[in-house]
Nucleic acid binder design. Structure first.
Lengths: 332, 332
DNA sequence: TGGTTTTATGAGAAAGGTTACTATAAATGA
DNA sequence: TCATTTATAGTAACCTTTCTCATAAAACCA
């Protein structure tokens, strides 16, 4: 049972395949109603599904975009991915998923793969100093959008980001206003620009009030497990601290767990602040106070921006900055 | 700056494109070392990336698989998707992501899309009575594997499932052993076969001890929000209940939250049991007692099974049943 | 040594399904 | 009747793979 092609339909309808193709592509202002309908009927009868691989080869467009991200299992990324996929689907594109585990090597391999598949564009959430991947994409003239993760030295790229610095400043100010003084900051991997930005927000604010101390700063890896481990270290090493600002929600979850297990009262004894506002942060108990990124909007915007670039729209805004905002819940 | 093709390389190397193609496909036992190396060098120099669309058209293989699931934002699915993607990548395939929100209409559209893209196979996590989609896939001879969600009347399909019935039985027995008697059961959408199976496990076990009561059974939709809502109803409507068995973890999270807010002590006053064992269930506080599905293994198996089918392997096991197991934590 | 058979190497062309450009025939209009 | 429009056909191109066939060199034999 061979697959039905445009040729079969042409033969059955007694017309050329050009005509059939035109009908399917709405370039049919010159086709008689009669012919058009005959073709459409035959197509439906045979359950014709166009071969978009062949179409892609001819048009050099695949109507697919790639999305490269560290780990779909991380709620922050799955929410972004969801937004991207929704928007892509709406605009007639589909999405190829690539998990990199923050490995630049994997990123590069995926980039090559995507290029070879004639992907129309890439949404890239970098896992590190991903310059080689970016260069590869650029050299092949593939439209791309960076999301969430800035890449140092590639400021001229299209991107959708969050004002990390301002978000953290707001968070720290809030903790201070609650009379917290020894605020621990759990940073993300420091080879990520977003980590540096978030940390800077913390440092500057603490400095401003003369409260900054090197020993209050910890680093972890944005994972649940990492949050647990670092929190255990904090408990062991620090005598007095009255708040922990985790630079993402996921680490905060791990941390809260360890703290509760160790008998710390939240928020009475110690306040917890997260960053991201992933969906579950309002479902755990106690609910997490956090700096909310508009995750869905960011993903959606990234996708529509990418498709604008693909379509060669004019006057595109190159970079979008979203403003995060403090959401006060029960951990502070 | 046109894209480099096999032709360019052939011309530069002074050979035919056949030769170049053979070199890249390791069908080169008949090519002299000299020629091979010349070709490889030129390719590297020009940063040649093969056009796999053209290759797909010629070979009728795309080395892509589609994964159709309700919502990537749901941790259960993102964990499965992650497993699938890992395995696919390992075997040289990539993955097209499709979120259906349990809408059969969306499923069908995606199926058509995937077929038109010459996808090599589909992993299908059904959102309902998805017979039309399945029929479409079958009629087009696309290899596919059902995961997690059984489809009534399609028992002969390839599939990777969990012994839902047995899992729930084990869970209920455990609750009973803890002297719980009024065990509420929160079922999933009843148009899903897995819901029916899980419910049956509950019903049979409760019946066995003469404890089954219609009013202890509730239905929700497997979402966090749904879990909250149904739990509020339970609190309002039932006077005495000493345990709630949620038929997935996500609903349990929503439920725990509502219960805690309403002053119920967990597990002292009421025990909570979930189903799935998604990653966060061990990170919330209190940690969730649940019936664990081997989620990663199931995804991995589904993918390798699919690729076996694609490769026409012989003697393939058609259906895999994974045995869930009780994991006792702090909510019971 | 000369001629024939193998073997190694690679050329050429078709096929895959579609689009896009050009050409042509028929119908229409002035 | 000629020019224009309308409707459709023909064909090249997209880039690979794959099959068949050709050629030159090497090996063989007497």
């Amino acid at each position: 049972m061979r697959k039905v092609t445009i040729n079969d339909i042409a033969k059955m309808a007694g017309v050329s395949k050009t005509t059939v193709s035109m009908v399917f592509n709405n370039k049919d202002e010159n086709i008689s109603r009669e012919t058009r309908e005959k073709i459409l009927n035959i197509a439906k009868e045979l359950n014709y599904i166009p071969n978009s691989i062949a179409r892609s080869l001819a048009t050099k467009k695949s109507y697919s975009i790639g999305i490269i991200l560290p780990d779909i299992t991380n709620p922050f990324f799955s929410e972004i991915a969801r937004a991207i996929e929704d928007e892509a689907n709406k605009l007639g594109y589909n999405v190829v998923l690539c998990n990199t585990d923050n490995k630049v090597k994997k990123e590069e391999e995926y980039v090559k793969l995507l290029i070879s598949k004639l992907i129309d564009g890439i949404i890239f959430i970098a896992g590190g100093e991903s310059k080689r991947s970016i260069d590869l994409i650029k050299n092949n003239n593939i439209p791309f959008v960076l999301v969430d993760r800035y890449i140092d030295g590639y400021e001229e790229c299209y991107g959708v980001f969050c004002k990390n610095y301002d978000g953290v400043v707001e968070g720290v100010e809030y903790l201070l206003s609650k009379n917290k003084r020894n605020i621990v900051f759990v940073n993300g991997p420091k080879d990520l620009e977003i980590s540096r930005q978030r940390f800077q927000g913390y440092k500057d604010t603490m400095m401003k009030y003369g409260l900054f101390k090197e020993k209050l700063v910890y680093e972890s890896d944005f994972t649940l497990e990492g949050g647990k481990i670092v929190t255990q270290r904090i408990i062991n090493e620090l005598k007095d601290f009255d708040a922990i600002f985790y630079s993402n929600d996921v680490m905060a979850f791990g941390g809260i767990k360890v703290l509760l297990r160790n008998g710390f009262k939240i928020p009475e004894k110690i306040s917890i602040m997260g960053f991201d506002n992933i969906q579950i942060s309002q479902f755990i108990e106690p609910e997490l106070t956090t700096i909310a990124q508009p995750i869905y909007d960011m993903g959606k915007r990234a996708c529509s921006l990418l498709i604008d670039i693909i379509n060669g729209e004019e006057n595109i805004e190159k970079v979008y900055y979203f403003m995060p905002k403090l959401i006060i819940r029960s951990t502070t």
